[in-house]
């Protein structure tokens, strides 16, 4: 096992609310590690609506999703949070007691962190790859149907069907071309969202008969014991045909799923985490939850509400991290102590 990281707080989810929690914790000298399954920070704002304007962030009459994320990154920069991106938090284990909480957080990438408090800012759940719309696909997952490439070697000498028309699909079709015995790219239309140079590279290979391109949609899978033998496609003329292959690599975008949070022993109410609104602590002492993932009477799924929730969670988290220190209420405007932390004094 790799080395265990020791810190004050682990924040699960680097959406806007998780990001701002770093700020509120930082003002109280609480060091944070942030984990997100996405390869970038910003949660829904960055993934679902980066270019869209938001009109209800206090102090910003208008700001785009990505603009807000960038402003937040700048705002929390003085606290140097550690980011673990592209990793999904799988387990949260209790090591401490109710009086002296301690948690061990483990990701699917093997990162293990021990922290006094955990802040769950998991929003609508973790962004996970969408399944292709073929019945029975679950039985093949991890054996011959994949949504990302962890080991290129798996594909050596195999016939690989790559489904999709964006950068991931095209990049992997091109990267696997020298490794696989044959790459078959399938997309529903003869137009690609991917970068033009990869589309051109793909078209050149297809023209030389070194790669196959099928303009079609996936409708069925054939095989046994998790091993594919063929994929049924439906062409633009609505005719169905089978294409033999050993693996399918499908890129159908992302969807939000609650994911492993359900297994952490927390009380859940309709896939949301109930909290105490004075502290934003969950049913487990030392585990807090903020943002879209929580529920309480009057909860609004708004970014500004998530910011408020983070500020209150930080106050109570301070008690767990510094049980012997009294917390003094201070303003960033006038406290030289806070300004030193922000690097402005």
């Amino acid at each position: 096992m790799s080395e265990i990281i020791q810190t004050d707080a682990v924040i699960v989810g680097a959406g806007p609310v998780g990001l701002f929690a770093v700020f509120e914790l930082g003002l109280l000298d609480i060091k944070a590690h942030l984990i997100d399954i996405l390869p970038k920070v910003g949660g829904q704002c960055a993934e679902l609506y980066p270019e869209k304007p938001i009109y209800d962030i206090p102090g910003y009459p208008i700001i785009t999703g990505q603009g807000l994320v960038e402003a937040l990154e700048k705002q929390i920069h003085p606290f140097r949070p550690t980011f673990h991106l592209g990793e999904m938090v799988e387990r949260v284990e209790t090591l401490g007691t109710a009086e002296k909480p301690l948690y061990r957080v483990a990701t699917d990438a093997g990162t293990t962190i021990e922290a006094k408090v955990v802040i769950i800012a998991a929003g609508g759940g973790s962004f996970q790859p969408k399944r292709p719309p073929t019945p029975g696909v679950e039985a093949y997952e991890g054996k011959s149907v994949f949504y990302s490439v962890r080991k290129m070697e798996h594909f050596r000498g195999r016939r690989v069907m790559v489904a999709g028309g964006g950068d991931s699909a095209l990049d992997w079709a091109l990267n696997l071309h020298p490794v696989a015995s044959r790459v078959i790219l399938v997309h529903r239309r003869d137009e690609f969202r991917a970068a033009p140079h990869s589309v051109n590279a793909m078209r050149a290979l297809v023209a030389e008969n070194k790669m196959d391109l099928a303009i079609a949609q996936l409708t069925g899978l054939k095989g046994a014991d998790g091993q594919l033998s063929a994929v049924t496609l439906r062409g633009a003329d609505q005719s169905a045909f089978d294409v033999e292959c050993d693996d399918l690599l499908a890129f159908y975008g992302l969807t939000m799923k609650l994911g492993p949070i359900a297994d952490w022993g927390l009380n859940l109410h309709e896939n949301l985490i109930p909290v105490d609104t004075a502290t934003f602590e969950t049913s487990a002492p030392g585990i807090f939850a903020v943002g879209d993932i929580i529920t309480y009477p009057g909860k609004l799924k708004l970014i500004l509400s998530g910011f408020h929730e983070g500020a209150l969670a930080a106050q109570r988290a301070h008690r767990h991290v510094y049980p012997d220190k009294k917390l003094l209420f201070q303003y960033t405007t006038s406290s030289t102590n806070l300004q030193r932390k922000l690097g402005v004094s």
Binding site: P133, G165, H187, R188, R189, R193, Q217, G253
Partner: peptide, 11 residues
């Protein structure tokens, strides 16, 4: 919208 339809089933 056409780009987004790539992610829908049975288009």
């Amino acid at each position: 919208e056409e780009d987004m339809l790539d992610f829908a089933a049975d288009v």
